[in-house]
Design a protein around this nucleic acid. Structure first.
Lengths: 230, 230
DNA sequence: TTGGCAAAGTGGCCTGACCAGTTGAGCCAT
DNA sequence: ATGGCTCAACTGGTCAGGCCACTTTGCCAA
């Protein structure tokens, strides 16, 4: 009877991370079948519904495949920074693509004459800061900020691309990485970097906006690499 | 003898889609709070655990935000079917996005160690040249060439983006433009530019490949602008 | 007016149960 | 033997109801 309070994140998240860690550690090789839900749940000291929620999360994130009546199977995925499998987007593939697109989005946003779109960027940053001071995770606010910038670029194609990239980022192994990578210090740095971007865009400084966005994405990549390296 | 998998799909998927549809239809405006789980579940003829699974799926997919003790809130949706006229991609928006992404794809392809992928680039170019000498339009071969380069970058995310961009380009306004822009002279130049790109990639010259791709895209843009102005 | 506190409401999580699909072992006819 | 068939065990899918922890709200007292 685990009656532990709600200290960390939601339970299904923790379970998902635990299982993802097992997969990453090789305890559960690709293609292998996980223990049955009825088996695994007590072993992890959780109930079956919670386990199921975690499995659904892992399934959506592409780590696992659920075959009804048969079992839950580990999907072939690339946890370490490798990327020869052409069809499995690694955690750094999305980041690489963002690095190509988002700095120029920021520059275009800074040049934009659409006052409303630029206001939306400022507002998104405000929400992000508000969540930060409230001590909340602010994952979603982060996404909104970057999306607002893409919108402000005035190019709907770019804004769609950035939207897709963030959806990808939530999908694969990456989501687990992002959680690991966000230390309190990193979170503070993150906010500062976003502030620089927001200021540059507000000031209409295209080159500065581009540079700030690039610095930000490089910092994110560094943090994730460090999280991987241990 | 019901040999169908399960009615449609798993229940939580259907529920999630139903809720997503409500959001897209405007019945649940962004920022609004969904009915409580205890309320909503019976209304959808499902149990609370199933509803919870659906909400977790929607949360991971970024459509919804779950605030413990408070409620489930609709997040600003990004891609309902409609965007207003100003958001419709103009003929140069796609080209602008390609200008950001494809030169670096070419550079990555040149650096790639995947011999098969680089061979695919060469083959795609061969087909394009063949169609050109045969006097055919070669629209598809052109697309295949650029896609092969994106594939050879080794980053599946980039290759998907480029694929999407070419699909956008086939949209009404743009496709009319491309037809206008392709004069016999331009077609010959086009082939030459592709040759430069293919050679640079084959030679493993990343910088040259990037530059060649950039020159090519700029030339295409010039041609389309001329077609518009003249 | 303002401060704090308590009840109502909400999500978070658990137990226990039954249904439905998959799978493989074992039986039977060939 | 061997091919096909049946059937029972196993697994995920779903449901019902319950308790706990947190958030919010509004009342009440200072």
């Amino acid at each position: 009877m685990p009656f532990q309070p709600l200290e960390p994140r939601r339970l299904f998240r923790r379970i998902a991370e635990q299982i993802a860690a097992m997969i990453a550690a090789g305890e559960l090789p690709p293609g292998s079948r996980l223990p049955s839900e009825r088996d695994l749940a007590p072993r992890l000291n959780v109930s079956r519904p919670s386990l199921r929620e975690a499995l659904i999360a892992l399934e959506i994130e592409g780590l696992v495949e659920v075959r009804g009546g048969s079992g839950v199977y580990v999907r072939a995925a690339a946890t370490p920074p490798m990327r020869d499998a052409t069809d499995a987007p690694g955690p750094f593939d999305v980041l690489e693509a963002r690095l190509l697109v988002e700095p120029d989005c920021a520059a275009l946003a800074a040049r934009s004459t659409d006052a409303q779109a630029r206001l939306a960027v400022a507002e998104a940053f405000g929400r992000m800061r508000a969540e930060a001071v409230a001590g909340r995770v602010g994952d979603l606010a982060d996404r909104d900020f970057h999306l607002a910038i893409a919108e402000a670029s005035g190019n709907p194609v770019l804004s769609r691309i950035v939207g897709d990239l963030w959806r990808d980022q939530a999908a694969p192994v990456a989501s687990r990485l992002t959680r690991l990578a966000v230390s309190p210090l990193r979170r503070r740095q993150n906010l500062g970097e976003h502030a620089q971007i927001a200021e540059a865009i507000a000031a209409g400084a295209a080159a500065a906006a581009r540079a700030a966005m690039r610095r930000h994405l490089l910092a994110v990549r560094r943090a994730r690499m460090a999280a991987l390296g241990g």
